[in-house]
């Protein structure tokens, strides 16, 4: 029993030491990656209010863009892609390319919605931060927001290309009739 208690205490001590060391290691890694120019950090602190205003305006513009793109994509799926493919099925005509476009479009549309939510969450977090007092954290959050914005941009471009592919596919189908 005494031996077991001794091993138990040793185990707990080792675990706590490990956690503390891991925490130092992680924090060191985080700070080691922050090679941000001091001039940039100073600019962030000095221009904090104007930066926040720009971000707020951008948030509003992005929301408007999302509404516009979202309704266009919804219209493409509801009024063009789905009814055409249904009609093809009813006429016993299989067009693999058009069916693939439907699958890709629907899944990327869902990804677009998810990514937009993630991006807006980060942007809102960025606007709420105190850039005057904590420019380094602000810049870190800005980098994270940029990554999400890039993903969103890629998804929007991909969806636009699928609309063009749909056009080409239907033009080809019309030629075969």
């Amino acid at each position: 029993m005494k031996q077991q208690a001794k091993w138990l205490r040793f185990g707990i001590g080792a675990a706590v030491t490990g956690i503390v060391l891991a925490g130092f290691g992680v924090s060191k890694a985080v700070f080691a990656d922050d090679n941000v120019d001091q001039a940039v950090l100073d600019n962030i602190s000095q221009n904090c209010s104007s930066i926040k205003q720009s971000l707020t305006d951008l948030q509003r513009a992005d929301s408007r863009t999302r509404a516009y793109l979202g309704s266009a994509y919804e219209s493409v799926v509801r009024d063009f892609i789905t009814p055409l493919n249904l009609r093809l099925v009813k006429n016993n005509r299989v067009d693999t390319k058009l069916f693939e476009i439907q699958g890709d479009f629907s899944s990327q549309q869902a990804d677009f919605r998810t990514e937009y939510t993630a991006y807006m969450r980060e942007l809102e977090g960025l606007i709420a931060m105190d850039c005057g007092g904590h420019p380094q954290e602000f810049y870190r959050q800005l980098e994270k927001t940029r990554e999400h914005r890039t993903k969103l941009h890629n998804l929007a471009e991909s969806l636009n290309k699928l609309v063009s592919a749909q056009y080409q596919g239907v033009a080809s189908l019309k030629g075969d009739l």
Partner: peptide
């Protein structure tokens, strides 16, 4: 515009 889902394929 909504493409009708019924009917034969028409150019």
């Amino acid at each position: 515009y909504i493409y009708p889902e019924n009917g034969a394929l028409d150019a």
